[in-house]
Design a binder for these strands. Sequence first.
DNA 1: TGGCTAAACATAGCATCGCTATGTAATGTG
DNA 2: CACATTACATAGCGATGCTATGTTTAGCCA
Lengths: 208, 208
Amino acid sequence: MARTKDPAICTLLIERAAQMLRAREPVTLRSIVAGTGVSTMAVYTYFGGMDGLWRATRQEGFTRLAARLRAVPLSADPVRDLAALGAAYLSNALVNPDLYRVMFDAGFELEDPAAADATLHCLVTTIQRAKELGRFRPDADPLALATQSWVIGHGLVSLVTTGPLERQALDHGAPMLTALFISYGDEPDACRRSVELGWHPYPHPSDP
Amino acid sequence: MARTKDPAICTLLIERAAQMLRAREPVTLRSIVAGTGVSTMAVYTYFGGMDGLWRATRQEGFTRLAARLRAVPLSADPVRDLAALGAAYLSNALVNPDLYRVMFDAGFELEDPAAADATLHCLVTTIQRAKELGRFRPDADPLALATQSWVIGHGLVSLVTTGPLERQALDHGAPMLTALFISYGDEPDACRRSVELGWHPYPHPSDP
DNA sequence: TGGCTAAACATAGCATCGCTATGTAATGTG
DNA sequence: CACATTACATAGCGATGCTATGTTTAGCCA
């Protein structure tokens, strides 16, 4: 055989793309490799072209999202945790809005589709836990509820980051999730308390 | 003065852009004017560049959406009508998914912002009507409920058209809207009936 | 250990992109 | 009817993503 690909360069290019994305600079083939010492061909040997680099960047976005969701401290109250997970979802998207946009760009394809499923599964297990504690109806479909929570989170983030809604509109998340959870059988008063406890809609300034 | 701009050419260019968008062809300056007899400069005299043409296309998207919402037949049941409006929103986005994507692209700016507000106002008036009939609580905020309905519709459409969710996931719209309306005070059984009556999630093959 | 092979990487150039500078034709007005 | 102003065509510029080609380096086996 011959030389082996340097994984450091691979992550360097993705990191640089994400960084330029956040800086609102145009992400072009030549601007990415400028200053790194590597040539434009690296993008092709590593990712097969710009499309591949966008795909890898999308994957990076899901990786960061998964890390952020995994960092949410879980409690004995799964409904509170669901709200906390939703808030973390919003927080992640607001910290890297451009990375989030790339994640859901046209031509949605990942090299590792399990990464996207993992984030949903994170919600599903928490919903399952809520069911076992009798917070939701026994016949509640965890995947359906997880999907509907996702729809709310994505709808909010998407409309806020692209402009039509003000940042303050994120506050709608709490009552919307509350309405959704109640429709799945949770007791209204307890649900409101739990969601209020878990809901922290505004992002930390930190950015992992 | 001198020659006056030909509005026919203006609409022709927008129409062509929307058509190429739907055909999944790359929308480039030269490909747009190819075959029309007009030169590339027309895009600059009419729209000031490609950005202006995208902005005009975005506006066209809102115009079509408004027409579709206005075409929804209203009934004596405003909650039914809300569901019908939501379904029409989904229908419009599914018929022209690429036009819909352009509408909410980064750099959200319209030459006529009232067009976007008009669609929301369409929901607000129906919600107001529901309040007057006692379907929602007297202290319900119509704009908040309209915004939250929008979030659900946009979240669904966005996740379905970009890939992560299957088309069948649109069925989540009805229970989500039901949960939302109930949280605003509607009587559960009546709400379910109304939403079911108004909900037609799948688009007509026609495309105005 | 050393030579062969294949993969990683650099360089140069191509087609095409959006855009602008410049020239021409057409139209409304005095 | 002549002029000035605007619409539109043509040509070309810098920059884009990508590819063809050459060079260098790393791994395998005799």
